[in-house]
Simulated assay, not measured.
Amino acid sequence: MNKFMQSLKENRLGMTLMVFASLMTALGQMFWKMSGGGINGLLILGFFLYFFGAVFMIVSFRFGSLSVLHPLLSIGYVFALFLGSIILQEAITESNYVGTFLIIVGAALIGGGDN
């Protein structure tokens, strides 16, 4: 448990930036979908959000281990699920909840597995 906490402490800033990057890319993808396939403001906003998500991802690697940080991008699936449900009114099934739970548990376990 001590190694787990030490890894979290050493990678804290990188992990925070990576989760923020996941949120930005999920928002970018949602705006792409909302654009309806046309070239409009929503599509362009989606590209900018996705771009900034990629920048945050690149920067986050300066503040943590690749093996800890990269798997945290899977949190983007969790953000996408809830954004789709709340904003786009998409239905969430029981299997979506199970998958989301497994993603969160896996990301948490990997996040502390640096040593």
Rank of each mutant, 00 (worst) to 15 (best):
P71E: 11
V55I: 15
G37L: 09
G76N: 03
F52K: 06
G84S: 11
L23D: 03
L23V: 04
V55Q: 08
S22G: 15
L66V: 12
L102R: 08
T16M: 14
L102M: 14
A108D: 02
Y97A: 05
N11Q: 10
V55L: 12
V98A: 14
S65F: 09
M24E: 11
F20L: 15
G36N: 08
V78F: 10
K33P: 07
T93R: 10
I58A: 15
S67F: 01
G37K: 07
F63T: 00
N11V: 06
G64L: 04
Y97R: 01
L102V: 12
L43F: 15
I87D: 05
I104D: 03
F56Y: 08
I92N: 06
L13Q: 12
P71L: 10
H70Y: 13
N40C: 02
M24A: 15
G14F: 01
L27S: 11
V98Y: 11
I58H: 09
L72Y: 00
Y50Q: 14
F61C: 01
G28N: 04
G99R: 10
Y50K: 09
I87R: 00
S95R: 11
F48C: 11
E90C: 05
G14A: 02
T16D: 05
L69C: 11
L66Q: 10
I86G: 04
S85W: 15
A107M: 01
G53I: 02
M18K: 03
L81K: 02
F61P: 00
